[in-house]
Design a protein around this nucleic acid. Structure first.
Length: 851
RNA sequence: GGGCGCGUAGCUCAGUGGGAGAGCGCUCGCUUCACACGCGAGAGGUCGCUGGUUCGAAACCAGCCGUGCCCACCA
């Protein structure tokens, strides 16, 4: 060690992550450790495709947890010498990004329509150039060992090519089609969205009963609805065929109030006679269920609400009103005509846009869809056969249940930012051309072509992330070396949105599953148990945590608090991580500044050496196994406990004298243990471990590529473990006795031992002297007889012991009295009696131990 | 409506058939030559409730209460 290094170690009594992290990270980048060559096979290599964060995004706690898990496994495998690639990149995030830029425009008093499509998209690219790398920089702060030289973006030219190839092939297979169909219309983003982007919320509405007069009759049929404004588009009525009230009305017609349209009354099993009035109005253009019914019956579809959320010309006098305004107006008009029979409060679940937060308007519109059943079939099989293992196990079933019920996917979005759908129309001859590259002219009539205005759902491009990032559709070396990837960690909320779709496209286009393992991690909630969210103000910024406690602390904390169930964010766990980093630093200082200049090697001389080596190898075995099975919480806590309790609290304290003496054997053993502990912890706490490693005498290259320790079974020693652990136990008893007896901390007490001599360290660590001179034994603790001596203030001890004896005596008497009461013994539950007996036993034995 | 999960120490969470645990917090004692982000010693729990299975249940089963999430086209 250089004099400068030694000085730094001597003077730095506190580990300072802020000083270390940027410097160490730069060394890793400079070393090129994160940029593996595209060589070898996927079986030999290790690869992970990061769930691409939104380009608009900032690192949140979910990213930090997910990143900590991925990085732990990537680093572990890199240290094992595997060619390890962690692909990183960002998602163009259509709606979110467009919204951000539109907001900026609005601040300038402009709209995207004023700008025009081309200029707007240009503007978004400018935004991306300026802010798009923010989240990538934030991953670096976390210490993520991604390949920053292979960063990808879902709108890169090559990526677009892959998206178009996929679209074209799906179209050619007949999976992709265009249809006028009912979609979830999001008035907020003015676009259709998929079923998965809809969330249902409980809302209190009113349930209105409206009288529909029967044609050529003075009878009325009363229907119940929560959306009276849509009645203007009614084209039929349905009743349950088994409902005796309406049996004779089936086939007859009603007259639609306000409009006058004639509505046929149909029988339908779906109608619940017990709900409302048992009669259901059918509005095929504005209700998904009515839509389906309408298609079956061939009903007219009359759209009375337009994409702008306002009433259309079809709504007659109500045209131009918003849907909400129209509701009030229609109700008023019905009331005026005496058609409103009733109105009652009604709580039901209503679809809202996950993106804009606005209430979904089910509308019929011309959209592009992708049929999913054929793609789903093999994706179901691979999971059934565990070729893709989804863990924890309950998610496998959730996945399968959803996949088996999968429905067509609406892939078109009425946005400008995204992959513009590769379809061209020729208006004169009505030809539709789907192509990977823009065709010059119509192949049929030579006419001008017009490209589809819509873009693809963002998730359409994310679905091909694991292979598109590796260069697909080209046969690249990266694809050959790293596909399929090794595993995926994910939040469960994107299991369907993303994971399922990757499995489907992977099989279809890349010829294999995209990953072997899917680990669904827990959700870190806010401190109060609420969801962490920016809009609720409950988010905790991982970067703040890194600033204050260091990246290693946050990584350790997140892994420690994660489990299979959702957990609240725990500051204490992050602080535990911070304390661990500091403890590592200081224990290392002790070893590195005092060890004799020797090769690190296990060189056990005494039982404690055999013990710590045995514990070390056991810990390596167990921690490694837990990391490999995604049991991060137990892995890090076990490593923590070994290091802090076994190594620091006991072993270092036991061997300090030997270390200060410059003993070679203990120096070698300590350097060996330190090397292995640093390597073992590196996947979880990369910065502090790398920093300390730079001071280790065996240090040559960086720890990031140092071999990961493999447990050495030859060093396991059950007998040594037993001996030392009983010595530890005795030490603790002796210390407890001292404390109880009020002996000053520094006093060394005289004692003798009875029978087998305990290990040497017991006397030293409990500040006893077993061959000490004394007179009367005043107490016995296990094999140890404490002797009255000069060091022991006989009076103080006697006083303390007497006081304690009194307390115990009182407890014993109380117990004896209780157990002597026949009523209690006979009538009280047996366990209460037993507990009382146990208590009595304990008090009695403690009394005996005090002597 | 269906499904999944959770309820264990003051707090956050482990433990899933045989002696109730961790971290934090709390109490007491330590400026012991790595670390006060430290060291030593403690206190603290009817393991949601009720019933069942078992020699034995925090753990398995049933019901109930509380709580969270996912899926679902009953107006």
């Amino acid at each position: 060690m250089s004099a400068a290094d030694r000085k730094r170690l001597e003077e730095t009594t506190r580990y300072d992550p802020a000083e270390v992290e940027a410097r160490v990270f730069a060394e890793w980048i400079e070393g090129g450790y994160f940029h593996p060559p595209a060589e070898g096979t996927p079986e030999e290599n290790f690869s992970v495709a990061i769930p691409p964060p939104n380009v608009t995004g900032a690192l949140h706690m979910g990213h930090a947890l997910n990143g900590s898990m991925q990085d732990a496994l990537v680093r572990l495998n890199r240290m094992r010498g595997r060619n390890s690639l962690w692909i990183l990149g960002t998602d163009h995030a259509g709606i979110a990004t467009q919204a951000v830029v539109e907001k900026a425009l609005k601040a300038e008093g402009k709209t995207r329509q004023e700008l025009g499509r081309e200029a707007f998209v240009e503007r978004v690219w400018e935004w991306k150039a300026e802010y798009g790398s923010r989240i990538v920089e934030q991953y670096k702060r976390l210490g993520a060992s991604c390949d920053y030289e292979r960063e990808r973006f879902t709108l890169d030219a090559d990526y677009v090519r892959a998206v178009y190839r996929v679209f074209k092939q799906l179209y050619d297979k007949g999976y992709i089609y265009r249809d006028n169909y009912m979609v979830n219309w999001d008035p907020g983003s003015r676009s259709a969205i998929s079923d998965l982007e809809v969330e249902n919320r409980e809302v209190e509405d009113a349930l209105y009963s409206i009288d529909y007069p029967l044609e050529d009759s003075d009878q009325v049929l009363t229907v119940a609805t929560v959306r009276p404004e849509t009645m203007l588009g009614d084209t039929a009525i349905a009743v349950n065929p088994g409902d005796p009230r309406y049996a004779d009305l089936i086939g007859k017609r009603c007259v639609l109030p306000l409009v006058g349209r004639r509505l046929q009354i149909y029988p339908d099993e779906m109608v619940d006679p017990a709900f409302g009035t048992g009669a259901l109005k059918i509005t095929p253009a504005h209700d998904p269920k009515d839509f389906e019914m309408g298609r079956v019956l061939g009903l007219e579809e009359i759209s009375v609400i337009g994409p702008d959320g306002r009433m259309t010309e079809e709504a007659g006098e109500f045209a131009g009103l918003t849907a909400a305004e129209a509701r009030t107006a229609v109700v008023e008009a019905l009331r005026a005509e005496g058609r409103l029979r009733g109105e009652e409060p009604y709580v039901h679940s209503v679809p809202f846009s996950h993106r804009s937060g606005e209430r979904i308007e089910p509308l019929i519109s011309l959209q592009w869809f992708c049929r999913m059943d054929e793609l789903a079939a093999p994706a179901i099989e691979v999971v059934e056969r565990d070729e893709v293992r989804i863990q924890p196990g309950q998610w496998k079933r959730v996945y399968l249940d959803w996949m088996r019920e999968i429905r067509p996917w609406c892939v078109s979005r009425q946005l400008w930012w995204g992959h513009r759908i590769p379809v061209w129309y020729c208006d004169p001859c009505e030809e539709t051309i789907v192509a990977e590259q823009a065709p010059e002219r119509c192949g049929k009539c030579g006419g001008e072509l017009r490209q589809e205005e819509d873009v693809l759902d963002t998730w359409f491009s994310s679905a091909i992330w694991p292979f598109a990032t590796l260069g697909w559709p080209d046969e690249t070396p990266e694809l050959r070396a790293f596909y399929p990837t090794s595993f995926l960690t994910t939040a469960r909320e994107i299991l369907f949105l993303w994971v399922a779709r990757m499995i489907m496209t992977g099989i279809e286009f890349a010829g294999d599953v995209p990953f072997r393992d899917v680990y669904v991690h827990s959700v870190i909630q806010a401190r109060d148990g609420r969801r962490m969210s920016k809009s609720l103000g409950t988010g905790i910024d991982p970067l703040d945590e890194i600033d204050v406690h260091g990246a290693d602390a946050l990584r350790f904390g997140l892994l420690a608090m994660s489990s299979t169930q959702d957990v609240r964010f725990s500051d204490a766990k992050v602080e535990q991580g911070r304390d661990l980093a500091n403890k590592l630093w200081n224990a290392s200082r002790l070893i590195l500044l005092n060890a004799a200049p020797v090769e690190p090697a296990p060189r056990p001389l005494h039982v404690e050496d055999r013990w710590i080596l045995s514990r070390l190898e056991q810990t390596i075995l167990s921690v490694t196994e837990k990391l490999e099975t995604y049991d991060f919480a137990h892995a890090v806590q076990e490593a923590y406990s070994f290091f802090w309790r076994d190594l620091c609290d006991w072993y270092l304290e036991i061997v300090k004298p030997r270390l200060y003496d410059g003993e070679e054997e203990v120096s070698a053993t300590l350097l060996y243990a330190l090397e292995r502990v640093l390597a073992l912890l590196h996947p979880v706490m990369p910065f502090v471990s790398e920093e300390i490693w730079s001071f280790h005498p065996a240090h040559q290259g960086h720890l990031v590529v140092h071999p990961f320790p493999v447990a050495d079974e030859a060093l396991r020693d059950a007998a040594a473990e037993e001996d030392v652990e009983s010595g530890i136990e005795l030490t603790q008893k002796l210390r407890a006795w001292r404390d109880l007896a009020g002996v000053p901390a520094a006093a060394v007490l005289a004692a003798t031992t009875d029978g087998v001599e305990p290990p040497e360290f017991v006397a030293r660590l409990s500040r006893f002297e077993f061959d000490g001179v004394g007179s009367e034994p005043v107490a016995s603790i296990g094999p140890v007889r404490v002797l009255a001596s000069e060091q022991l203030d006989g009076e103080a001890v006697a006083a303390r012991l007497a006081k304690r004896r009194e307390e115990l005596q009182a407890e014993v008497e109380r117990g004896e009295r209780k157990l002597g009461n026949e009523g209690f013994v006979a009538k009280a539950p047996a366990e209460v009696v037993e507990e009382e007996r146990g208590k009595l036993e304990r008090y009695r034995s403690e009394l005996a131990e005090l002597g």
